[in-house]
């Protein structure tokens, strides 16, 4: 199953080592860490949950942490949806 799609108008911006999600339509700004920024970018690309977990695990050299990563991705995308940063979708 795919991750929920990112809401249009929300962009990722990196500035001086910090990551921000900017809602250019709603005017809200969220400061996020690199993990959250990566997960949001995966939502933008329409990646599947499995693909996102594998991508994060490989990218961060944490293949042995896949169960924890999966749980964190699910929690994070639900938070994105609550904040209006991702479109609503059926529960993962």
């Amino acid at each position: 199953m795919s991750l929920p799609r990112a809401t249009s108008g929300v962009i990722v911006q990196q500035q001086d080592g910090a990551f921000f999600l900017l809602d250019t339509e709603g005017g809200e700004v969220f400061r996020v860490n690199e993990t959250a920024a990566r997960i949001f970018e995966l939502c933008q690309s329409g990646t599947t949950l499995d693909g996102a977990v594998q991508s994060l695990a490989k990218g961060l050299n944490a293949v042995d942490q896949e169960p924890d990563i999966r749980a964190d991705v699910q929690r994070t995308v639900e938070q994105f949806q609550e904040l209006g940063l991702c479109e609503p979708s059926p529960s993962l």
Binding site: Q15, F20, L21, E28, V29, F30, R31, V32, N33, E34, T35, A36, I39, L56, A57, L60, N61, A62, Q65, D68, I69, D72, V73, R75, T76, Q79, F80, L83
Partner: peptide, 12 residues
């Protein structure tokens, strides 16, 4: 090492 995602509503 994986670090859990963190989101904080807000900067420079």
């Amino acid at each position: 090492m994986y670090t859990n995602a963190q989101i904080v509503r807000v900067v420079l």
